[in-house]
């Protein structure tokens, strides 16, 4: 590339080089996509194969005939109940985190009060504590509070873990809104809670959506917290159920992978539609692990 060409190359040669380059980058992109997606597609293919085809050697890339027997089987083994649990916990965590996060973020963005700087450091500090080092202590705490093995306990923990990033996101968003609107409303006699509810929140929809998505992905995907804090079947969430299927079905990979694919579907669908909200949040916040 660096050798200088003093006479302009012929048109044909130029075209050929462009074509070679496009083909080359197409190949590289295909390899990258295959690397990222192969495990998922292979799992999907396996989950649709008839039982005896799953362990056939040499392995078949695609099922000879698509079957939903493994999906039927996990639904018979109450996967529906676990999906429901995951949905309830996720929805409750979103509501609670956004409510507390909007109030806290607004206080930080628009009010000067003693201890504000400390509150910011506290938020960043909590954001950087890795959950693993909290597991054992949290287990003891929940047992003291009587919240072990309850959905409420999970909701409260997810809220505590996601609040810092939600406050951070909303704080940034509130700062970007023009303050004059709020001042005008204050002059008209609105209380600060009414300003937040009637003026600020309706203007902050993109920020709220981004924040809700973090909480949703975290709560729907969480395995480590749920597997330590819950044990009974009635409160079990989907990831914990998949982990338990590993022992339950033993070496039967069909139902195991069917349950895994079920867990992925809402995440992949939501992510592809709402991608821009995710990426902005991944880089923000800086220290969250």
């Amino acid at each position: 590339m660096s050798e200088a060409t003093f006479e302009p190359p012929r048109r044909g040669a130029w075209r050929a080089r462009v074509a070679r380059r496009t083909a080359g980058s197409l190949v590289v992109n295909a390899v990258i996509a295959l690397f990222a997606l192969f495990p998922i597609l292979w799992g999907l293919s396996t989950s649709l194969k008839p039982k005896d085809e799953i362990v056939a050697y040499p392995p078949r890339l695609l099922p000879s005939a698509v079957t939903f027997e493994h999906y039927m089987r996990v639904f018979n083994d109450s996967v529906g109940h676990y999906i429901l649990n995951s949905t309830i916990v996720t929805a409750a965590a979103i509501v609670l985190t956004l409510a507390a996060g909007a109030l806290g973020g607004y206080a930080l963005a628009r009010f000067q009060f003693r201890g504000r700087g400390m509150a910011m450091v506290f938020i960043v500090g909590v954001m950087s504590i890795p959950i693993a080092s909290l597991l054992v202590p949290t287990y003891s705490t929940l047992s003291v509070l009587g919240l072990l093995n309850t959905r409420t306990g999970l909701v409260l923990l997810y809220t505590a873990y996601q609040l810092p990033i939600v406050i951070w996101t909303l704080y940034g968003y509130f700062l970007s809104l023009p303050v004059e609107l709020e001042q005008a409303a204050r002059i008209d006699g609105y209380s600060s809670s009414r300003v937040l509810w009637r003026i600020v929140l309706p203007l902050s929809k993109p920020g709220l959506v981004a924040a809700a998505l973090f909480v949703a992905v975290f709560s729907w995907n969480d395995f480590v917290v749920a597997v330590t804090m819950t044990s009974s079947e009635s409160v079990r969430t989907l990831p914990v159920a998949i982990y338990n299927y590993l022992g339950f079905y033993g070496r039967e990979w069909g139902p195991l992978l069917a349950a895994s694919i079920i867990s992925i579907i809402p995440i992949v669908a939501g992510f592809l539609f709402l991608q821009r909200y995710f990426v902005s949040g991944l880089t923000g916040g800086g220290t969250k692990g």
Partner: peptide
């Protein structure tokens, strides 16, 4: 392409490890 690459990061860690466990498993034939 960035969206495609991000998919393994977005799905549950547990599910990702489960999918790889199946690839590593001898029975899968891979």
């Amino acid at each position: 392409m960035r969206a495609i690459v991000l998919i393994p990061y977005m799905i549950a860690m547990l599910v990702g490890s489960m999918l790889l466990k199946w690839i590593y498993a001898r029975e899968s034939g891979l």
